[in-house]
Design a protein around this nucleic acid. Structure first.
Length: 301
DNA sequence: CACTTGACCTGTCCGC
DNA sequence: TGCGGACAGGTCAAGT
C-alpha cells in the first residue's frame, strides 16, 4: 500500500532523524526481511554511519558511510519507525504512540544505533524487504534501471508520459499506471484517484486515449501525489510514517474505497470493479468507457 | 511478446 | 463461538 506519497513521507521523516547515527547492532528473525550476506552485514552495515536518505519510485535508500546502501521496499504492510533513546525508556508523554511500543509482533528487523536510538522495520505480511547493496552499483541494477520516470520530477512532461504509455498500446490505462517501468511510484490508490480526476475509465486502452486525456492525466497525477504528500499519505490499516503517525489522505479521497457513496463531481454512485486483477473504483458517469470520438461515431450510425 | 494468473504472507471480515 | 474461505494489493515468476 505504501505508494510514492507514503514512501516520500517516510523519507522526509527519516531524513531529519537518521543522518549522523552509527549502526551498532542488527537483529532479524525473518531472513527475507533483511537480505545480504552475514559477511557484508558485518563489514558494511555494523559500524557504518548514515549519510543520507533518498527515495526512488517506492523504494527508500538509506545511504551509508561504507559505500553501501540499505534499499527498503515496504510493499503492502511495511513500516520504518524510528524510536529515540527517550521513547525507548518510556520518557515523554504519548504512551499511545507506536514508537513506545516497539518492538511488536510485526517487527522483522531492528537496527540499533550507538546513541541508544533504534530503527524498526515492521511488516505484518512479510512481503517487504531490506537489501544491503553497494551504492555505486545501484543505478546499474535491473531493479532501478527498468523504472519509469518520477512523476514529481520537474522534468516530467505530458510528452514523456505519452511516450511511456505508448510502449503498451493495448494495455488498459490502469494496468499501465501500475506498471513501474511505465511510470514510477503509482499504486492502486492514486491510480484510481488520478483517473477519476482526469475523467478516464480505467479499462480504456491506451491507444484510444486522446491527447487531451493524456494531458489531463499528467496534471492529475502530479496534483494528486502532491496533495497526498501534504496529507502525510494514505493509511488504510498499516501505513505509518517514520514517527509512527498515520496519513490522512483517504479522508480526502474521491473514489478510492468509496463504492456506494456519491461522486463529488456529479453525485452518481461510485462503483467498484476489478481491472487487471485489482479492486478499482470509478464514477460510471464521469469516467466514460468510450472516448468522446467513439461515442460520437456510434451515435451517427 | 503481451498479457494474465499465481505466489509470496497475515489479519480481518463474512457466511454458515 | 469457531471455522473456512475470500479479500486486501506490490511485484516477480510462471503460465497462456
Amino acid at each position: 500500500m505504501p505508494e510514492l506519497p507514503e514512501v516520500e513521507t517516510v523519507r522526509r521523516g527519516l531524513k531529519k532523524l537518521l543522518p549522523g547515527r552509527e549502526v551498532q547492532s542488527v537483529k532479524t528473525d525473518w531472513p527475507k526481511s533483511l537480505q545480504g550476506s552475514k559477511a557484508d552485514v558485518q563489514q558494511f552495515l555494523l559500524g557504518a554511519r548514515i549519510e543520507a536518505v533518498h527515495r526512488r519510485a517506492k523504494m527508500l535508500l538509506i545511504e551509508l558511510s561504507s559505500d553501501y546502501t540499505l534499499v527498503v521496499h515496504l510493499k503492502m504492510t511495511g513500516q520504518l519507525v524510528f524510536q529515540s533513546d527517550k521513547e525507548r525508556f518510556g520518557a515523554g508523554h504519548p504512551t499511545d504512540s507506536l514508537a513506545h511500543k516497539l518492538p511488536d509482533s510485526s517487527t522483522r528487523v531492528e537496527i540499533a544505533f550507538t546513541d541508544g536510538s533504534r530503527l524498526f522495520f515492521n511488516d505484518q505480511r512479510k512481503f517487504g524487504w531490506i537489501r544491503l547493496l553497494p551504492t555505486p552499483e545501484l543505478e546499474h541494477l535491473p531493479l532501478f534501471q527498468k523504472l519509469g520516470p518520477e512523476p514529481l520530477d520537474p522534468s516530467f512532461s505530458w510528452q514523456q508520459l505519452r511516450a511511456m504509455l505508448q510502449r503498451r498500446p493495448n494495455a488498459s490505462i490502469k494496468a499501465a499506471l501500475l506498471d513501474q517501468t511505465v511510470i514510477s511510484g503509482i499504486g492502486n490508490i492514486y491510480a484510481d484517484e488520478a483517473l477519476w480526476g482526469a475523467k478516464i475509465h480505467p479499462t480504456m486502452p491506451i491507444r484510444s486515449l486522446s491527447l487531451v486525456q493524456i494531458k489531463r492525466l499528467h496534471g492529475e497525477l502530479i496534483s494528486i501525489l502532491q496533495l497526498a504528500i501534504s496529507k502525510g499519505g494514505s493509511t488504510d490499516k498499516n501505513y505509518v510514517d517514520a514517527k509512527g503517525k498515520k496519513g490522512s489522505y483517504l479522508h480526502f479521497a474521491r473514489v478510492f474505497r468509496r463504492e456506494g457513496q456519491s461522486c463529488p463531481r456529479c453525485g452518481n454512485a461510485i462503483i467498484k470493479l476489478r481491472v487487471s486483477g485489482r479492486g478499482t473504483h470509478v464514477c460510471p458517469v464521469c469516467q466514460k468507457l468510450k472516448s468522446p470520438r467513439a461515442a460520437k461515431t456510434e451515435a451517427n450510425q
